[in-house]
Amino acid sequence: MDGVIKVGMADLKATSSPGILTTLGLGSCVGIVLYDDKSKIGGMAHIMLPSSRIANGNNINDAKFADTAIDKLLGIMTGMGAKLTNITAKLVGGSQMFTSKNGSNDVLKIGQKNVDQTLKILQEKDIKVVAQDTGGNYGRTIELYSETGVLLIKTIGHGVKQI
């Protein structure tokens, strides 16, 4: 695909219009999409865990955690000319890919935890969440069209939608 910027797992990128950002196969991870509809600058982060506080060690990858990824992405986007007060968010992913028959398994429920925590962090940072497609038990591939702000969500067996 031409002009499409790929965001990997534990990765984040930003683009100006008409760039397209995509991340493939979001499972229990969460795709955070930030967009300024005035400057048409968009950003995408594919986070794995909610908070960098649990990280041990000193070489922290900012894009891996919701809190640090949001800060970093906001920094990059405002650096490109986006205005903080114009930026809104969309959340995708956080599904439970596998169900455990023998009761509760915390690891398998990480998706829901990721979504809850990310919502809380966005609220703390005063960023409005305008749309959300989270949960379920299936994977999602997303594409952000920075020209329009439309976020396309593709799934296997659960259709295609726009939010």
């Binding site: 534990a10 196969g25 499972g27 991870c29 041990n56 890919m97 690891v107 994977g139 296997i156």
Partner: peptide
């Protein structure tokens, strides 16, 4: 699961993420 491999592998990967 019958799904995208990235989504499926996110489960063990997240465990490592810590």
């Amino acid at each position: 699961a019958f799904d995208m491999i990235g989504a499926v592998l996110s489960v063990p990967m997240i465990e490592f993420g810590h």
